[in-house]
């Protein structure tokens, strides 16, 4: 199990940030991803692996209007 934005979320072996975004249906482009307190640049989403027990914050910025 991992935490995503403070809520429990099932973990799977080899889960990348990129895959996590797909699994969560997070299609919004203006995101800030923080893994265990460390900001992850968007060009590192594919190569960054999420481990069991990790804390992930996927902050959606605002847009529109």
């Amino acid at each position: 199990m991992i935490k995503v934005n403070g809520k429990d979320y099932p973990w799977e072996e080899g889960l990348s940030i990129k895959q996590l975004l797909v699994n969560k249906g997070f299609t919004f482009p203006l995101l800030v991803v923080v893994l265990n307190g460390k900001a992850i640049a968007d060009n590192e989403y594919v190569g960054t692996v999420v481990n069991d027990g990790d804390d992930v914050k996927i902050i959606h910025l605002m847009s529109g209007g």
Partner: peptide
């Protein structure tokens, strides 16, 4: 009108303002 505030992501998705 939403021009004063658009907080849906901050609230509903990010859970930043509980």
């Amino acid at each position: 009108q939403h021009d004063e505030a658009w907080l849906i992501f901050m609230d509903m998705v990010n859970h930043e303002i509980p």
